[in-house]
Amino acid sequence: MTAAIASSARALGVEIRTNAAVDKVIVRGGRATGAALANGDELTARVVMSAADPKRSFLQFVDQQHFPDEFVQAIRDFRVRGSSGKVNIALSGLPDFTCLPGEGPLHRGAISISPSIEYVERAYDDAKYGNFSRQPYMDIIIPSMIDRDMAPPGHHVMSCFVQYAPYDVEGGWDDAKKEAFGETVISTIEKYAPNIRQVIVGKQVITPQDIERIAGITGGNIFHGELLLHQLFFMRPAPQWADFRTPLPGYYFGAAGAHPGGGVMGAAGRMAATEILKDWQ
């Protein structure tokens, strides 16, 4: 999907520069006039749009003096508690689930570990007090069942989306904590697919802090900010600034932290582009 969008953009004349981290948005005469990169390069442009998360976009890229206090406060109050982790597992064979033994349609579908409402609620309770879930809710897929190129023949990749793994886990995320989290995930799967340990050949544990580091999202919140009613629609990312404009002329905002929020939709990007064109006189 990414390749297709990038290719479409290039075909229309867009240039994409990777390894080009933005340090600051350049402001001159009360307008955004370009971006200063971390490597010292400065680029000028008539319009700058941030597709990073709101905290970076408004508290890091731009000096606070360019925004009204109320706006800065609203962005500070914007909740970005990351709470999902990820465990990717490389397998030498398929997990055999006791509920549906043998290879079957479930291996091609979505596998949910959410046996009861109470189970899911208790998983959440742990996170409320700063711990990862002792018995986590999991959303598992085995993409190599669909895309055979992802693993050698007979081998598979199992992607486990895990809740809850709080960003600011009590005591912090160190190697031991990460290992314990991975182990919890595997022993949970083992209850449903007892052969899992025999087929594991490798695993990768990703915490919200890793998501923050890898994907550049403050708080490691996969939606660039929680999907809470009070920070959605005309209040995302801040009341009065949900139309992709920002208090800084020439500076636009069009990512998951904007209306209509996170998830792979492309809606924010599309609407932001439309609004930028409206202002283009």
């Binding site: 109320e70 809470l228 009613l229 009070h230 920070q231 209040m235 009341p239 009065q240």
Partner: peptide, 14 residues
């Protein structure tokens, strides 16, 4: 007024 209006609306679901 804008400030209170948004505060009230936001507070209800918080």
């Amino acid at each position: 007024g804008g400030k209170d209006m948004f505060r009230v609306m936001r507070s209800l679901s918080m």
